[in-house]
Amino acid sequence: MNASPSSSAQAAREAVAARLVDIRKTAGLKAHEVAARCGWHKSKVSRLENAHTPPSDDDIRKWCQVCDALQHAPDLIAASRNADQMYVEWKRIHRTGIRRRQEVDVPLYDRTSLFRVYCSNVVPGLLQTHGYAEALLSTISQFQGTPNDAADAATARLARSHVIHEGRHRFVLLVEETTLRYRIGPPAVMAGQLGYLLEVLSLPSVAFGVIPFTAQRRIWPVETFMIFDDDRVQVETLSAEINITSPGEIDVYVKAFARLQRMAVYGTKAQSLITAAIDTLR
């Protein structure tokens, strides 16, 4: 059985801590000596070496410097940042609002050639209208108790989604039929969102599929996730964003996506399901 993403993140943090211990021992130093040379309390060294506290970039540089191993600092800093980003609670990500989070992913979106997206609960962010995104992000802010900058965040989300109209990117986007019926915002907002999905069906770079209520399940409805090429998977849970870069774990999501993809309907059949959802608004 594969380890959970959160346990994988902890394993990555422990690997960084183990490397710090190895560097100290190679330098022939005791833990209390490293603490003294860095000007720290000795308990800090214990916390770092046992992965109880993640090291800052400056912590790593100081550690490597006093151990005469500065050449290892860049790789250790990169590994520590990767471990820190693998499992991050939404409250931490959104502590200053949601707009900034939309902007951070722009380089990732720009360099990705193939997007594979599965959403079991909301319309994919890449396809959201401003009204739908604002209503959704406002609800998220209220639930999390974080600053509500939904209007600006929605604008940033739409700016991030410019890739949907560029030919060098390809998209396979899957939703459960339930996402077409959930009322995220008032009827006018939902009508605008569903109408936009009908427009998306004609985009040559986009394959948009809907998994009907009546589909024979080859895999149960799972959490929302995005696969960026074959390099990274972002998983969204209620409490956290999980970034997966381990090839073995990525393969699990690629396998799940392939099964979900075979269950979906496309083209005129998807159009019929969207139209039926619009009819319920009347």
Rank of each mutant, 00 (worst) to 15 (best):
D57R: 09
Q71K: 11
S138P: 01
Q71C: 06
G131Y: 04
R19P: 01
N121D: 14
P55V: 06
M86V: 11
Y87A: 15
I77Y: 09
R116Q: 11
R37M: 13
D22S: 12
G131F: 00
A35F: 09
V66D: 10
M86P: 06
H94G: 09
I98V: 11
E103Q: 14
W40N: 14
S138E: 02
R24H: 00
H72D: 14
E14S: 06
E103T: 11
H130I: 09
A78H: 07
R61E: 14
G39S: 06
R81Q: 13
K91T: 15
P55N: 01
A78G: 05
A31Y: 03
G131K: 03
C64N: 03
P55R: 00
D110M: 10
V117Y: 04
K42N: 13
R100A: 15
H32G: 02
L48W: 06
K30M: 15
I23S: 02
Q85C: 07
A12G: 13
V66P: 09
K44I: 10
H32P: 02
E103S: 05
Y132I: 01
L126C: 07
D149C: 08
N82F: 13
V45F: 13
E89Y: 08
S138L: 03
D149A: 03
K91V: 06
R100F: 01
V123L: 08
A51T: 02
N82L: 14
E14W: 03
C64G: 14
I77P: 08
A73C: 10
Y109T: 04
A73M: 10
C67D: 02
T96P: 02
S120D: 05
E103P: 02
V34G: 05
V66N: 01
G125R: 08
G28H: 05
A73I: 05
A83F: 03
A133Y: 06
E33H: 04
R99E: 08
I93A: 09
Q85I: 04
E103H: 05
F115K: 01
R111T: 12
K25R: 10
K91R: 15
R111E: 07
M86H: 13
I93V: 12
S141K: 04
A18D: 06
D110Q: 12
S120H: 03
L137R: 01
A18R: 03
V21M: 05
L126D: 01
Q102T: 00
Q128P: 08
D105A: 14
V88F: 00
R19V: 01
V21N: 02
T53C: 13
T53V: 07
V66R: 04
C38S: 08
G39H: 11
K42W: 12
A12I: 07
A69W: 04
E134V: 03
E33A: 08
